[in-house]
Amino acid sequence: MYYYISNSNQAAFNQATEEYFLKNFDENFYMLYLNKAAVIIGKHQNALAEINLDKCQEQGIEIVRRLSGGGTVFHDEGNLNYCFINEGQKGELINFRKYSQPVIDVLQSLNVNAKFEGKSDLTIDGMKFSGNASHIYRSKVMQHGTMLFSSDLNRLNSLLKVNPLKFKDRGIRSIRSRVTNISDHLSTPLSIDELQNKIIQHVQNQFPEIKPYELTDSDREAIKKLMEEKYLKWEWNFGYSPKYKIERLISFANGNILEIELDIEKGRIIRSEILGNCIKMGNIVELENKLLNIPHHKESLLQELKQINLNDYFLNLKIEEFIKAIF
């Protein structure tokens, strides 16, 4: 068994590293890492329904879909993340309590009232500080979880806040819980690096055979390739979302009103309907058809709309206003 402490704070790289370890090694792994500010989407979620996209883009927040299910979480450098990759028996692979126990043990040794609650949550005095998710690959399970240590909780709430009535889909919805930081419950101050070291020491005591692992040049090249071909791609992070419908009614300062319905599948528009008081009647079906098969992605739509004269379809409506209506 190996333990690995990542020296990268890029969410896409660390997600790719987890998948690389899971699918390319026979040995078990325990991995710890810190990401710079990022939003991590569950595999079966509609990314746009889980995040405040405008705020994420304004702040340059990395948005990455992970390999496992579960809800959306916020990472920053006050959030320590762990990943257990373990071989096991079919039907007995998923065990959230077992793989999160080292975190609970360490915190309880620090007189923090940490507990395992519900299906996969870790709490302190009833407030959640860790969510966990898992993914099975052949005879192995990968379980990873967050540990809110000194995370910016106000930023977390603002980035994961979205209008729940805006989207209709069958994606897995995140359940927002009351959360807390570990650091607020420590009787003696501790840094996040010191907590990381205590967890590694505890895992070493549990698994005396465990050895440190350092990435080779070939490892890094393979992880970078996986990151670039998957975890940095719109097709994975947004296009992989389940089929969904978006309904928008928007009023503009000049009195224009626009109502738009879009059906999205595999990230692309498969049906569109446009109504409003600024439409030139008779031509709008032509525009609706031109939107088909375009990715539901601001930059892609903007490029397509630049090839279209919106004055053929609308009275006094700018491209930026139309884009705003779609998102």
Results as ranks from 00 to 15, higher is better:
His75Ile: 11
Ile124Met: 09
Ile308His: 11
Asn293Cys: 07
Ser241Asn: 03
Arg155Cys: 09
Asp125Lys: 03
Ala38Val: 05
Ser300Val: 02
Glu18Cys: 06
Gln307Val: 04
Tyr33Asn: 03
Ile274Pro: 12
Gly88Val: 07
Asn28Cys: 12
His135Tyr: 15
Phe314Asn: 05
Ser174Asp: 05
Cys56Ala: 14
Arg173Ile: 10
Trp234Asp: 08
Met31Phe: 03
Asn79Gly: 02
Ser158Gln: 14
Ala11Leu: 01
Lys36Gln: 01
Ala16Trp: 05
Leu22Gly: 00
Ile172Met: 09
Ile5Gly: 11
Asn256Leu: 00
Asn9Met: 04
Glu228Asn: 15
Gly239Leu: 12
Ser8Thr: 06
Ile199Gln: 03
Val162Gly: 05
Glu87Asn: 15
Leu292Gly: 05
Leu249Arg: 15
Ser100Arg: 01
Lys318Cys: 06
Leu156Trp: 03
Gly118Ser: 11
Arg97Ser: 11
Asn316Arg: 12
Gly71Ile: 05
Glu247Thr: 01
Asp121Pro: 12
Phe327Arg: 01
Ile274Asp: 11
Gln143Glu: 04
Ser68Gly: 07
Lys224Ala: 13
Asn7Pro: 09
Phe129Ser: 06
Ile210Ser: 08
Gln59Pro: 05
Asn277Tyr: 00
Ser120Gln: 04
Asn197Leu: 13
Leu302Arg: 15
Ile182Glu: 11
His296Ile: 10
Asp193Pro: 00
Ser120Trp: 00
Thr180Leu: 10
Tyr2Trp: 08
Asn28Lys: 10
Met127Gly: 01
Leu310Asp: 08
Pro295Asn: 12
Leu262Met: 00
His297Gln: 14
Asn311Asp: 09
Glu265Leu: 01
Tyr313Cys: 07
Tyr4Thr: 04
Ser134Cys: 12
His75Gly: 13
Lys306Ile: 05
